[in-house]
Design a protein around this nucleic acid. Structure first.
Lengths: 376, 376
DNA sequence: CTGTTAGCGCATTCAG
DNA sequence: CTGAATGCGCTAACAG
């Protein structure tokens, strides 16, 4: 038999309500009773039953983090760490759920979150069909991370996908590349569509017609990246550069380039979205777009916490900058004319921008670095 | 207000017990009442409150998977997928917790699992100090995955770490390498110590004294791999080959080799534990030891399920084989004498071995492939 | 300040 | 086969 609050009350010689009050520390209790209860708790190694507590309170002191693909390299891993640290700092335990880009799995986890009465959910929506109503109806706080959900008034933290992709393409243009291809992610996700948008905008701004035969929409997975890259290479004339919209697709694309024995960057330059620790170790070191994955998660945690603490202003969207890590895979072409209009601004991390919010967050700083501390 | 079983009973014109019986389907109920209840449930979009159910039943139909480091590349991601699929097939939702190699975080999650009454826990123990008693006392089923917990009678599924490391070292010996170093993981984990053991056994079997100055014990992280590799290279004479015990440390070791401008494999051969999708894409394609990560997870799920279904035999340990992916980073030395005693057996995946078990598992096949289907 | 009392939503005795 | 009654462990009124 598990020890209950009743056992503690008996041993301490008080009522269960007193034990409860001591444990939750909200109301005033006489010091001697506090001592008695504390001793009894320790003596019995009493641990409150969260289930009963949750039933009574009609909410559970747990967060659920629902991510869209646990296999997306270090990106989601760092994001998870960011949320986890934020949750931990605030004293909330956190469960993680992997929706695997599957809307029905995602819906299942959201139902579960409702059924388990979680206090809050941080979610990477799989697409516009993601239904937040069950959560909202149940009074559960929701924060969107990494991907927006257009039209839904929820606090959101995202990276500046459009600018990131623009930066990458402008960098390629400045390097003399002219037939730049793009392997985009699912357009139903804002990460998919906004990166493609950034690609198009950079081309337009440079006065070049975006050539849709150089665009492939794939699925954020290796296999999709492979197929897209194969198709692009069969095209005549083939691209001389490619921007790949995430890490997993980049692996697929690089495999195809490797198999085709094309030289990077001489025959095709490559830039991959998502920084990865092995980028510098590749046959040709890979130029990547870092996303502040850890900060994305940590910021999401702070938005959720502020809601749980009673903030009820209109939804806030936090946009964090990306950073271009220039490496050999995008080396400028021999004798590339550095036309002034194509010069790329130095891509230092900018301050986070706050949009749509009634006011800023309580504290300042852009949080910790992009990567968790254990690497330093 | 959320709809409760009471609302359903009212709308269906029956008692709450009848609704409960219909929902759980264990007892017999008159067909017409079943129909009424079913209709009312649909009409009200009723979803049972899992918290109340859990309190009443004193157990919760959820699994918790506690892994030791979410950042360990695809390994844990695939393991998670394996467990998840197994849980899903059996109709259990699953939460994931990331202990981050931190025993206190791990203990916190185990406490949480107890407090939440989960039906079962699948755990990658952070070390021998991991305390399973709170779980066992609470009647929660536990399965260990990836790492054993010596002395504890729990169902366990692991890869054959010792043989894997032996294979790797024998392969290097056969290739003419003689000063083979090893970067081991924490010896408190069986993955750390067994891989080191395999390394030593291979050397001894070849009649070579294991040289401890060629062994470094690190922390399974990039930074540890970096430092270990640096130390090994400073040693005189330096190693001509190195076996690195996991993916993250391999990244660190490769960074150092890169910075030192050493040629792989001419100046130093490298084999990394854990297969990684980008292994073939590195400057020198990396020889790796694949672990059946997905199968490890899926098998753990099956062991847990069999316990939940009432199996109460003695604890079973399932050992799955590893597989050596030979690539350029371990190319035999020029004119390496292929002494007969050093020839490596072909390392095909072997059938899983069952140890200590009273009987085999219900079904046959070694499960699905090492990698989830979406890559094929 | 403290104890008594009454549920949170559900599954399960126990009678009928 | 069905319904009324009970309690899982806890917290929040409500009186004292």
């Amino acid at each position: 038999m598990v020890t209950t609050i009743f056992d503690v009350a008996r041993v301490a010689g008080v009522s269960t309500s007193t034990v409860s009050r001591v444990l939750n520390g909200n109301e005033r209790v006489a010091p001697d009773l506090v001592a008695k209860v504390t001793r009894a708790v320790r003596e019995l190694d009493y641990r409150p039953n969260r289930v009963a507590r949750s039933l009574r309170l009609r909410h559970n002191r747990v967060w659920a983090l629902v991510i869209s693909d646990i296999r997306t390299g270090p990106f989601f891993a760092d994001l998870v760490r960011g949320v986890e640290d934020g949750a931990h700092e605030a004293g909330y335990p956190m469960f993680l759920c992997n929706a695997d880009e599957d809307p029905s799995k995602e819906a299942g986890y959201l139902q579960l979150a409702v059924a388990e009465n979680v206090a809050g959910v941080i979610l990477t929506p799989s697409g516009p069909a993601t239904d937040l109503r069950p959560l909202i109806d149940a009074g559960i706080r929701v924060v969107l991370a990494d991907r927006k959900l257009p039209g839904l008034p929820a606090d959101t933290v995202v990276a500046d996908n459009t600018s990131g992709a623009m930066q990458a393409v402008e960098h390629l243009l400045a390097g003399g590349y002219r037939r730049i291809a793009c392997i985009a992610g699912p357009l139903a996700t804002t990460t998919g569509s906004e990166r493609l948008l950034g690609y198009r905008m950079a081309l337009e701004r440079a006065g070049m017609a975006a050539d849709d035969s150089l665009v492939r929409v794939a699925d954020f997975r290796e296999q999709g990246g492979r197929q897209a890259m194969q198709e692009l290479l069969e095209h005549e004339p083939p691209p001389d550069a490619v921007l790949v919209s995430n890490n997993r697709m980049t692996v697929g694309a690089l495999e195809v380039i490797e198999e085709t024995k094309l030289a990077i960057p001489e025959e095709i330059a490559v830039i991959g979205y998502d920084e990865i620790p092995w980028a510098p170790l590749l046959r040709t070191a890979l130029t990547t777009l870092s996303q502040p994955a850890y900060d994305l998660g940590h910021e999401a945690a702070r938005l959720l916490l502020s809601r749980l603490n009673g903030y009820s202003g209109s939804p806030r969207t936090v946009v964090l900058p990306t950073y271009l890590n220039i490496r050999a895979s995008s080396t400028p072409k021999q004798g590339a004319a550095r036309s002034p209009t194509l010069v790329v601004e130095p891509t230092r991390p900018r301050r986070r921008q706050l949009r749509d919010g009634r006011r800023g967050l309580a504290d300042g700083g852009p949080g910790t670095a992009n990567r968790p501390a254990d690497r330093g």
